[in-house]
Design a protein around this nucleic acid. Structure first.
Lengths: 111, 111
DNA sequence: CCAGCATATACCGATGAACGGCATATCGAA
DNA sequence: TTCGATATGCCGTTCATCGGTATATGCTGG
């Protein structure tokens, strides 16, 4: 699972949202670092729907414009949980090794 | 940065290693989940070298076979640190939202 | 009055990392 | 002698993401 996909699932973990709201949520969540393109978002939404990780919650017409709300499915929640556990574990390993490096000074073994 | 790339940097954070050893380290690190293909590894190594994130540490001839050791550069260590911080933060956000969901039961608002 | 911006969904070509397989080479074990 | 482990390297394919464009409406400013 790539970063944008993970962030889309994270956005929907907060509750049902429509596409455009997901783009804004992800931008806020990442401090403006990740700005999902429309192409990326709707492709990801279609793919995740095909994989059964998200579902269409409801559709609304607001100002004669369609708003399609998506929600995380049960298996989507499981996928997000296992993915974030993986991320957390890998980050922990990397940080542990970096700390060990910093202490021993493995890069420049001058002493 | 994608997962395989991150794992290669994490492997080298433990100290200089040659390509094949990185494959094994990554496999061990991930409990056998990620088995880097030769194509993925050496392409990543070349790319990371081009980006200055890793450097060739030394070359050895063991049993008339070449062994090229790579090490993390200073900028590679910085990149790995910021990347793992990002991973940790995103995992924290996702897990917080999942916990909130579990408690309130946002998926099935039956109650 | 209408040009531009925000909202909102959707399509499409290009890019590039990763995948999977293959080639090459040596050594030890079955 | 064939197979598996070690070890590097190449190459075609796949696929998610990127970036741009199209479509449509409502609001705001010059």
């Amino acid at each position: 699972m790539r970063e944008p996909t993970f962030l889309v699932l994270t956005a929907l973990a907060a509750g049902p949202q429509h596409g455009y709201a997901v783009i804004e949520d992800v931008a806020t969540m990442t401090g403006g670092r990740v700005k999902l393109r429309a192409g990326t978002l709707y492709a990801a939404l279609d793919r995740l729907r095909g994989d059964g990780l998200i579902e269409v919650d409801r559709e609304e017409i607001v100002q004669s414009r369609l708003r399609r709300y998506y929600r995380l499915s049960a298996s989507g929640a499981r996928a997000l949980a296992s993915e974030s556990a993986r991320l957390r574990e890998q980050a922990a390993i990397a940080e542990k090794r970096l700390r060990a490096r910093g202490v021993s000074g493995a890069v420049a073994p001058v002493t």
